[in-house]
Design a protein around this nucleic acid. Structure first.
Lengths: 338, 338
DNA sequence: CTGTTAGCGCATTCAG
DNA sequence: CTGAATGCGCTAACAG
């Protein structure tokens, strides 16, 4: 019942070599032969064995995707984008999740051996790899590309996080806010990945350019999660003394958390508090959250496309690419009440 | 530079067969030999080629996971659970996303050939497969198990969706509500998958048992998404005549959408409107949403564990399993205002 | 407990 | 344009 290339060859009355060429669209097969082989293969329901072709050709037609976790907005969408272009090209997607529960933190460690000899290229999502890990990876000789953030030693596809954060903060400043809070990542995020720090830098740049003071008590960690945002908001709201009139959140999820907590306390948005995030999370439009939008789906697509081009023989296809971000004004920002 | 089993064998002064046995933990290898082989393999950085071992053994040590999309709460968490147990057992996870944008809808079609000869088992997430597709799958001879909902013709791991919906509705009724609305899936969801219909059935059962009338104008589609929930809520709120005092939402995402819209209109929850969902989405606790909780992460783990046991030789390991759900009372439900 | 011998199913030379 | 032969790197009998 198991149909192999041999069966197709026999029925089509050609050699297995010809079947192989015909099926893969290689040249040097007459149109007539190709058609015959194709129809026979179809009829028999022949599917080449990946193991066998992989062993024989040295190519697995599989791309690995290393992610901190899959159950978060950015990752889910980026994975979806990658999957889409891979699938359309007949490539397989081997998923490696480190099962992190925090935004960027990883629970399990990544070993180069997980990946060795079974993929043609590796995409790394938003993960800080240590120099040794990158070295190991390069050692395998396969193309490595990061998505969503920079990884030292290999090109990446991502937005200019610092610029995005700066622009978001400047939106608040342009609205007239001077007392601006900032929700950053947790210690874990900041250690494991560079993006949080870039966003912090962008915030600080905007503030200092506007001649505004940084208020340490208004710069609190939120772990990039909704519940972290809730906690951070509570912490700021509970502060004695004046409250910020606006908060820039390093992610929409945190901003949404702040919204929930504000509502709970009867703090009106944007009348009493302006809020801006980064991402354009699925929930942001329904919630009316102003944000600096980015598109992980697109970033995944772009990265996967580059990798496929590289594997397709176009050397130099894999290169750094800065993706766009854009301000989406909704209903969570307004000039400060006076 | 490429180190194969032969290299290890030479350096360890044994045959390749012994290396293979030692590395895979098979019996019939003396402890001393095994230790030596292991250390040599380690030293050389040897990793067996998946292609080669797959070809030779007929097993790929890879499990396929077919999902409607990855960028939604249920799927993301279930995938995470599956990945975790697979990875812990040294298995690979091959991801096939159909790229659906709606909750259950699929954008692309699934072909059995995508999966043939490259996986040892297939997990199907919350997707309605046609009888022919199931047949094709069974034809491949690999174990197939569904997660998150029933698929005719193969066992599954999921909650009793009808009972969960009924229990959620009964919570509202027990609180004293009699005017109860219901947010269901969109036409696409209901066609592509059975879960939405099961939840609807549970709602209707609870209502009829309590002797309550179904109000068609209060039973509106929400596509299982936040934005769908916003639209559905608007539709209900805009109705002339009395409003429901409570709404049961077929998913937390829709319930969250209703919350956003209610807040926009100044409708207080739970004072003026009680809300209950199903899922326990990550946002539900921060939002204070009462829900009938389920745990997709766990469901994924259980399913993957069964499949591994089956592949490990324990025939009959893959079987239907009903998972628990539980009411989580938070702050979105209360007795009706009178 | 260990080595020898055959393939696994296909892609690739190299002839023709 | 096509076929025959070779081997990818490993596992699985089978001997010993």
């Amino acid at each position: 019942m198991r149909v192999g290339i041999e069966d197709v060859a026999q029925l089509a009355q050609v050699s297995t070599a010809t079947v192989s060429r015909a099926l893969r669209g290689l040249p040097r097969v007459s149109p007539a032969t190709r058609a015959r082989v194709l129809s026979v293969a179809q009829e028999l329901g022949y599917v080449p064995s990946r193991s066998a072709s992989g062993l024989a050709s040295g190519r697995t037609e599989t791309v690995g995707l290393l992610v901190p976790s899959v159950d978060r907005w950015y990752f889910g969408h980026a994975i979806e984008g990658v999957d889409q272009v891979l699938r359309d090209s007949g490539y397989n997607l081997l998923l490696f999740s480190l099962g992190g529960t925090s935004a960027y933190g990883r629970q399990r460690s990544f070993s180069e051996t997980m990946v060795r000899k079974q993929i043609d290229a590796l995409l790394v999502l938003t993960l800080e790899l240590s120099p040794e890990e990158v070295l190991q990876l390069h050692h395998t000789g396969i193309p490595v590309l990061s998505v969503g953030g920079p990884v030292a030693g290999c090109p990446g596809v991502f937005i200019d996080d610092s610029a995005a954060a700066q622009a978001a903060t400047e939106h608040l400043i342009a609205l007239g806010h001077r007392n601006i809070g900032y929700l950053r990542g947790g210690p874990q995020d900041e250690q494991d990945f560079e993006v949080p720090n870039l966003r912090t830098a962008g915030f600080e740049t905007a503030m200092s350019r506007a001649g505004l003071q940084l208020r340490p008590e208004w710069m609190v960690p939120g772990n990039y999660t909704v519940s972290g945002g809730v906690r951070a908001a509570a912490q700021i709201f509970d502060l004695a003394g004046e409250n910020p009139t606006a908060i820039f959140c390093g992610s929409d999820e945190m901003a949404l958390g702040v919204m929930f907590e504000a509502q709970r306390r009867g703090i009106r948005i944007p009348a009493e508090l302006s809020l801006i995030g980064i991402d354009d999370h699925d929930f942001s439009a329904p919630a009316g959250l102003t944000t600096m939008a980015q598109n992980p789906w697109d970033q995944g697509r772009v990265a996967a496309t580059m990798v496929l081009a590289e594997l397709g023989g176009v050397a130099g296809s894999v290169q750094e690419k800065i993706m766009p971000f854009a301000l989406l004004e909704r209903n969570s920002t307004a000039p400060p009440q006076r």
